[in-house]
Amino acid sequence: MSFRQPSILPGFGLTLGFSTFFLSAIVLVPLAALVMKTATMGWSDFIRVVTDARALASYRLSFGASMLAATLNSVFGFIIAWTLVRYEFPGRKLIDSLIDMPFALPTAVSGIALTAVFAENGWIGQYLAPLGIKVAYTWIGVVVALTLIGLPFVVRSVQPAIAEVQRDLEDAAETLGAGRFTIFRRIVLPTVFPALATGFTLAFARAVGEYGSVIFIAGNLPMRTEITPLLIVIKLEQFDYKGAAALGFIMLTMSFVMLLSINLLQAWSRRRMVAAGR
């Protein structure tokens, strides 16, 4: 088997070469600097830094809250995308254009604004407080902030996929007596799933690294509401670049493994589809 399968389309060498070069210059060389920095610390130091009780607590919060946020985003992102694609209602265009806002708002602004809304004297916080639900300055606040910044990933990945779902198939299935749930499971989900997985992964990946918005709403108490990126900043404040690089390296590795497995899964499912003759 050769490196690539023959195709009559031109430009493979040029485009692949250019993208690999650019990728190396902008992404790989800088990340190599991070890895090298980590490598300058001894093995035992590295283990001590990354398995410190506080670091472990922060992974739990960072990865746990990100997982929860990405899940919330997948559920609601799917509903929102479905609503925007399938239904006509007043203000749909406006809402559609606002979906990208979490990207454009500087993360610090999202953090400040969310804290203002969810603090005990905020618009929403004042109604939650009597119920005993505290959002700002707790882990729930972290989840809220991470959900906000990941939302566009899911909605924007799923929207085109939902547009792709063939309505005729749905109708045919319905005529043949399939229930709503069956239609969803057998026709909608298979088409949308790869996009949903992409959206989930990207939302998760982005949430894990997020710093700007979270520090305003988290409370930042060590062992309880301290995220890993904050620990990295704390290390930097002490001029401990190696420690910071070590934590950054751990996060990078975990995210890389996550992303790679999802991408492999997708490639596999696409090949299966192709093999089945589409």
Partner: peptide, 21 residues
């Protein structure tokens, strides 16, 4: 007795005055 550890002095002031924490 500290409910929130802000990352900077101005952040703490805002938490105290604006958020009434």
């Amino acid at each position: 007795h500290v409910p929130v550890l802000d990352s900077g002095a101005r952040g703490a002031t805002n938490t105290f005055v604006q958020r009434e924490i």
